[in-house]
C-alpha cells in the first residue's frame, strides 16, 4: 500500500535518497554473492537438449521440394537435385520418377538461426541439434554440405526425432512397418 501511495505523489528528495541507497545496497549484495558466469572454453556449458545450436539434415527424408530454400529469409540454403526414373517393378507397371538430392548446403555465415526451414519442412528432414562449437578460421568453411549436415543428426534429441527413426548403428529393432 505504501508503495502505491508513493507512486501517486511526486517523488521527493527523501525518495531520491532512498532510491540511491537501494542502488548501492543491491550492487553490494550482488558483490557478496558468487558470479553466474561460466568460463566456457574451460568448462563445458550445460545446455538443454533442445537448444538451437545447428541445423541437422536427415537426408533420406528430403524430397528436394525446395520449401526450406524458398522460405529461408537469408537465402542460405542451396539445393540441387535431378530426377531419376525407377523402372516398373511389376510387369506392365508404370515407371516412376523421383528426385535425387545432389547438393544440400547451408551457409552458416549467412544463417540467422530463425528455424523457419525446420518449421516448413513437411517431411521431417531438418532438425535442431544442440552442437554449437563449429566456429571456423575461414568463413568459407561455414558452408556445411550434405554429409556434414548429416553428422549433426547424432545429437538431435530422441524427443525431436520422427517416429520410427533408428539412429545408424542403433541395435534397437525398428517397429514393423508394412
Amino acid at each position: 500500500m505504501s508503495t502505491q501511495e508513493s507512486r501517486e505523489r511526486a517523488p521527493g528528495a527523501l525518495d531520491l535518497l532512498k532510491g540511491l541507497g537501494k542502488g548501492l545496497a543491491t550492487t553490494a549484495r550482488t558483490l557478496a554473492r558468487p558470479a553466474h558466469t561460466r568460463q566456457y572454453p574451460h568448462a563445458e556449458p550445460d545446455l538443454p537438449e533442445r537448444s538451437h545450436g545447428v541445423i541437422a539434415l536427415l537426408e533420406e527424408n528430403c524430397t528436394s521440394c525446395m520449401l526450406c530454400a524458398r522460405e529461408c529469409p537469408s537465402w542460405c540454403i542451396y539445393i540441387d537435385s535431378h530426377k531419376e526414373t525407377l523402372e516398373p517393378t511389376t510387369e506392365g507397371g508404370r515407371a516412376r520418377q523421383h528426385n535425387v538430392l545432389d547438393r544440400f548446403d547451408i551457409d552458416f555465415s549467412l544463417c540467422m538461426y530463425c528455424g523457419i526451414c525446420i518449421e516448413v519442412c513437411p517431411f521431417d528432414a531438418l532438425f535442431w541439434a544442440p552442437d554449437f562449437a563449429y566456429a571456423e578460421g575461414d568463413i568459407r568453411n561455414l558452408l556445411h554440405d550434405k554429409p556434414k549436415l548429416g553428422t549433426w543428426m547424432e545429437n538431435v534429441p530422441d524427443s525431436a526425432l520422427p517416429e520410427g527413426y533408428v539412429r545408424p548403428g542403433d541395435p534397437a529393432t525398428p517397429e514393423t512397418e508394412e
Binding site: 550492487t27 553490494a28 550482488t30 558483490l31 554473492r33 558470479a35 553466474h36 558466469t37 568460463q39
Partner: peptide
C-alpha cells in the same frame, strides 16, 4: 573486477 562482481559477472579472467 568490482563492476563485474557487482553485476554477477567475473570480469576479465
Amino acid at each position: 573486477k568490482v563492476m563485474a562482481h557487482m553485476q554477477g559477472r567475473l570480469g576479465p579472467m
